[in-house]
Design a protein around this nucleic acid. Structure first.
Lengths: 153, 153
DNA sequence: CTGATATCAGAGGGACTGAGATGC
DNA sequence: CGCATCTCAGTCTCTCTGATATCA
């Protein structure tokens, strides 16, 4: 904080897209670190979360709901299945599909990851008042909705 | 917009960190696509922008100012030098260092990329009023500053 | 010796592409 | 036939780790 150089401010530092990107990078680092500490990834969390709310689903379904590419769903399900967090079984009604179901330990893991996520989020947005956080999500939602319409997702 | 499934909203979809991440992903996709169209990357832009404001600098200096790891600076300078946008010459005053200087075509390239960046940013934040955009940058800056203090960068 | 600089090799997560096999 | 599902093998950008050689 004292001495050293005056740090010339680079132009792009003040661009909204830069700040957005930087903040997101920081958030992801916090998240990835927290998840990595227990051997999880963001994809795994998203799939488990989607699974909880869908009960059971095919991989294609999971991909659609969690916004993850099918090819990455395959890998993620592999990881989760190896660790015993989900089970992969063929769908008797449609033999192209696998039915993915969460196990008890999978549901427990989701709760663990949820707690971490909450903590990290609190830390990340600590400098904002509740009102400011609302405003931030409002603005981001506005941007997101606009592009969802234009690109159909 | 009509018919189809009601789309059950996944929990994490409403989390501020999720929206932040999604918006940033979208921004980066727009940016990366725009840059890739002319054969550039985000790293290259950041280095060129830093270079413009520093005039000439060592690679270590460039890394610090642009927030890019030294090892990645090496690769980025390689790319920029191959395309004739910068020149790498040894520093006679300190033989560990290379002095990186932008060429005329490098400065021209920066201007091109700047224009693209402006366009993309306008498109990205189109749904926001000028006041809302200010508010967004204000909130993001607040978050960013807070963590800069805590982590020394 | 300590520290800074530059280089190289590699890993990792996240988003994405393309091709193939199978079954509806 | 067209279309959906699953799988495999890659690419790309960005961030970061570690080791090494060189020089201040």
């Amino acid at each position: 904080m004292e001495g050293a150089a005056p740090d010339p401010i680079l132009r792009f530092t003040t661009l909204p897209s830069w700040q957005l990107s930087q903040t997101a990078t920081h958030a992801r680092r916090l998240l990835a670190d927290g998840f990595a500490a227990v051997g999880a990834t963001g994809y795994q969390y998203r799939v488990l979360a989607a699974l909880e709310q869908l009960g059971a689903a095919s991989q294609a379904e999971l991909g659609r709901r969690s916004g993850i590419h099918l090819s990455d769903i395959v890998a993620t399900i592999n990881e989760l299945a190896e660790q015993g967090f989900v089970e992969r079984s063929p769908d008797p009604a449609d033999r192209r599909r696998n039915i993915i179901t969460p196990t008890t330990s999978g549901r427990r893991r989701l709760r663990t990851l949820d707690e971490q996520l909450t903590e990290i989020q609190d830390e990340l947005f600590a400098p904002l008042s509740p009102g400011e956080l609302d405003e931030l999500t409002h603005l981001l939602t506005k941007v997101l909705d606009h592009h969802r319409e234009r690109t159909n997702r």
